Amino acid sequence: MLQRFPVESKGRRKKLQEVGYVTTICFTCFLVRCIMMCFDAFDKGVDLDVLNHPILNLIYYLLVEILHSSLVLFILRKLPPKRGITQYHPIR
């Protein structure tokens, strides 16, 4: 998709920024989740079930599951413009 844009164009720079934001958000959230899973696996005192407290469980899953998905959807909310049908010719 970026090959259509000239190298120094504003559209190309904007798309690369969007890709960078999405990559950073996903990497950070997955890294936090990975670290929490490692703590849970190797330290018997750490429990991701947060003492059977449903509100703390909700907060944990909001941060590591739902937050990054909603941020990615927010960043990529604009759909690409629809292409006109160029191969259609009216019947004569």
Rank of each mutant, 00 (worst) to 15 (best):
P80F: 05
N52G: 15
D40R: 11
L63D: 06
I55H: 03
C26V: 11
K82V: 10
V32E: 02
L67K: 09
I35D: 00
K15Q: 06
H53G: 01
I25C: 01
R33K: 11
I75G: 04
C29D: 03
T23K: 12
G45K: 05
M37G: 02
I25V: 09
K44P: 06
V19A: 12
R12S: 04
K15V: 04
G84I: 12
I35Y: 11
V32S: 00
G84C: 03
F27L: 11
G11Y: 10
E18N: 12
G45W: 02
M37P: 00
I75D: 02
C26P: 00
I25F: 05
T23V: 09
P80N: 08
L2C: 06
I25A: 06
R33F: 13
L79R: 06
I75A: 05
L71N: 06
C34P: 00
E8C: 11
L62G: 12
V64Y: 08
I25S: 00
F42M: 05
K15L: 14
K44L: 08
L58Y: 14
D40Q: 12
K14Q: 07
P81E: 07
L67G: 11
V64D: 06
I25H: 00
L2A: 07
D43G: 02
F27T: 10
G84P: 02
V32C: 03
D47L: 12
F74Y: 15
F39P: 00
A41I: 03
D49L: 14
V64Q: 02
Y88S: 01
P81V: 01
K14V: 09
N52S: 15
I66Y: 15
K15C: 07
L48T: 04
P81K: 12
H53M: 05
I66N: 09
T28R: 10
S9L: 13
H53R: 03
Q17T: 10
Q3A: 10
T86H: 05
L71C: 12
E8M: 13
R12Q: 07
L31T: 12
P54I: 08
G84Y: 11
M37I: 10
L31D: 06
C26L: 15
L16H: 01
D40W: 13
L76D: 04
D47F: 02
L67N: 05
C38W: 13
V19T: 04
T86D: 14
G84W: 07
K82N: 07
R77E: 04
L16F: 02
C29H: 13
I55W: 08
L56H: 04
P80C: 03
V32D: 00
G45L: 04
G11T: 03
C38G: 13
K44N: 13
M37N: 08
L31Y: 09
C26N: 09
F5D: 12
K82T: 10
R77S: 14
L79D: 06
L73M: 13
E65S: 14
L62Q: 14
V46P: 00
T24F: 09
S69G: 13
I66A: 15
V72Y: 02
F5N: 08
T23G: 09
L76S: 05
H53K: 07
